[in-house]
Nucleic acid binder design. Structure first.
Lengths: 146, 146
DNA sequence: TTTACTGCAAATCTTTTGCATCAAC
DNA sequence: GTTGATGCAAAAGATTTGCAGTAAA
């Protein structure tokens, strides 16, 4: 019971793409695998490196175009953790938040419940609907604090 | 009592620069004015536009180089609000946080007290020292929510 | 006069786009 | 055989850098 869905997620996505008139290509398959095999958030460059290792001629623009498609279909979430580079993760893995250590780059995941009080405050006091899917909190982790 | 310091901030900064062996140029003076006159966080491009209005030949690389210097001296804080563009504000103005509307781009400022509970939780549960100076929370404001 | 600062142009770096070719269906 | 997808090269947008000339001290 590793996956959220009953079928393998890759198969689901392939089916979904086909149904919508998109095509399954080796490039797309490998890009999907790269995203799904990554626990952490992965960047376009990292996806590309991983794909190229097996299938040398894939261009990074194909990665970007595939990510754009997957975003549009709601299969992948794009997160701007700063640093001028987007990061991606499978939407099915649910949303979590990030404590990013500015020293060592490690990220700690938080779940929704820990930010719920904040969300409530923002809504009540500022009538602001916070999109906490895309939240990254910078700082320093234990190991780096000294 | 507008300023945190007793002397005008611009004068302080000029003195400080001179003491450290840096030079006061018209470009630097105007860049400093642009940063200080902005309540909100200002981008390099916005600073440049404001400076060029009065002093047409200033190059944007001068803006970047001045910002780098001011950062190094701790006079200006650089914030990565995402969108692949840094924003700057005077360090003396203290830190506040941002609710950024993804629809209209408006920002609502929060002060430290509203995020204090969160900071405490992160410290206690995750031993993570959150640098909330650099926090931006994305979402939708009242006007855009519908 | 010394050398820090500036303007300009060119280089980076990430992401996007135009276009001709290729391959999934 | 259609037409959506790909690779390549070039563009775009923000920031950085090399260099020769300029100006603050």
């Amino acid at each position: 019971m590793e996956d959220v869905n009953h079928n393998g997620p890759a198969k689901d996505i392939a089916t979904l793409l086909t149904q919508k008139g998109y095509r399954i290509t080796p490039q797309r398959t490998m890009i999907l695998e790269a995203i799904q095999s990554s626990d952490q958030h992965i960047s376009a460059e990292e996806i590309h490196a991983q794909v190229v290792a097996k299938y040398p001629n894939v261009n990074i623009s194909t990665v970007y175009r595939t990510l754009e498609l997957l975003k549009k279909l709601g299969l992948v979430t794009e997160t701007d953790l700063g640093g001028g580079r987007f990061r991606y993760h499978p939407a099915e893995k649910g949303h979590h938040h990030h404590l990013v250590c500015q020293e060592c780059g490690n990220t700690i995941d938080l779940d929704n419940s820990e930010l719920y009080p904040l969300k409530e405050v923002l809504l009540k006091k500022h009538k602001f609907i916070a999109d906490l899917q895309h939240l990254a909190i910078m700082g320093r982790c234990v190991n780096c604090k000294k």
